[in-house]
Design a protein around this nucleic acid. Sequence first.
RNA 1: GGCGGCAUAGCCAAGUGGUAAGGCAGAGGUCUGCAAAACCUCCAUUCUCCGGUUCGAAUCCGGAUGCCGCCUCCA
Length: 486
Amino acid sequence: MKIYNSISRRKEEFIPKEPGKVSLYVCGITAYDYCHIGHARAAVVFDVLVRYLRYAGYQVTFVRNFTDVDDKIINRSREEGIDSQAVAEKYIQAFYEDMDRLNILRPDHEPRATEHILDMQEVIQTLIDKGYAYATPSGDVYFRVRSFPEYGRLSGRNIEELQSGARIEPGQEKEDPLDFALWKKAKPDEPAWASPWGQGRPGWHIECSAMSQRFMDLPLDIHGGGQDLIFPHHENERAQSIAASGHDFVRYWMHNGFVQVKSEKMSKSLGNFVTLRDIYPHFLPEVLRFFLLSHHYRSPLDFSFEGLQEAEKGLKRVYQTKKNLESMTASPAKGKGQNLPADITQEIQEASSQWQNSLEDDLNTAAALGSAFSLVRLANRILEDKQWPKAADAGQAFHNILTTLQNLGQALGLFSQNSSGFLHDLRSFRAARAGVDTSQVEKLIAERQEARKKKDFAQADSIRDHLIQLGVSVQDTPDGPVWDLE
RNA sequence: GGCGGCAUAGCCAAGUGGUAAGGCAGAGGUCUGCAAAACCUCCAUUCUCCGGUUCGAAUCCGGAUGCCGCCUCCA
């Protein structure tokens, strides 16, 4: 497998430290608000990475943290009038609800910062002992950036450039403006822990350094997160971990691109962020997942509801075909000795292996979805033909296509729901979005059936026109009328 | 200002040296009493522009233009 490594700025062959095993650490959320689509993208990208690595036979240890002590959480606790642990707990639970619906697998370990204060203090003490950090008289501890010669390598910056932008805030006792906090002395009414340097709380960067090495041996095979984390968070993590451990920290750095709205970054200050809870009432979570995976993970992704609607149509098509294939394989036709045309069989073969090549190439999920549609098209070509469904090897072809869709879907976390159930849910969502009253539709359809029984086609057609005006189309099938949104 | 990324059909999007995947929309068709749905077929001689390297470039190099990100908390 090839992975784009942020630190070398190119695709590299992925070779884990230990054959067959992968250690993966991804920066999780700071639990102070509901998740937006950007969080969803990061979660989905690394979820697919884990799923695919496991599919490919690796034994993956996946750790993702929760930051549950932080300025933003403290501010939120004042706003909401509850203590900061309660704030964190509330948004961690919300995170689970939102991410479970997106079919995100739970990591193997999900440490919370407050559970590892002692681990952090241990790393900080080591850094002090080795001369990479210092405590100030008032009880802060800072990392001495200039003591770490490689500082800036991950983010492609040099110390002199950074120097020009850095400032010492009033009241800080840094030796150098570049130095960053490992431990912050307690302020009144803030959560605080006892430490060798007095009451205080950890800085943000140290928690990932402490928790990653608590659960996995250094160097980690893969460390992931959003692109904005490269500087300063990952740069600082790297400096801390290498300085403290004496080992390399991470072999492959992976960073996902941003979700944007109208080509601008989604952010609180621009007021253009969209939470998962804004989307879920209108679109099925799997539609969002499909939308996110239809773009390469490193590219910026422009979010729009129009884009979601397109994704919905594509996903519907896959499920529709899957459903048809399932009913076909449930009661297979007897083969009549004749085989499918060789080119069809060959195309199925090709598409069946192609998706894996795509994911092997730096997790190209968009290309993998292309393979899924190739299979869909092939399946439909056979299904719609007069003779082919009866071919001797048709059953085998259907089976191959379904199995591939299943495997590909397993790696992407898609297409795994019951087809009929999905299509039914989808129709309900689309009806709600169009403001269509489902019970009224059912009633009109019943009336129309009544009219048709009486051969009153004029009346039946008039009801159908009415339904069309509501945005509903009716199909008359051998099993009775079936409706859907226009 | 410093560093980095991106520019592919009406829209979305893959493609890192060998002659443009896929999706949506659109057009034709199959099916159908008529419809609808579903399905099939078609749909970029060309990849922002200008140079260069090469037998060959969307892909590599140089330049221009435009958009975006990071440099402060951020997935």
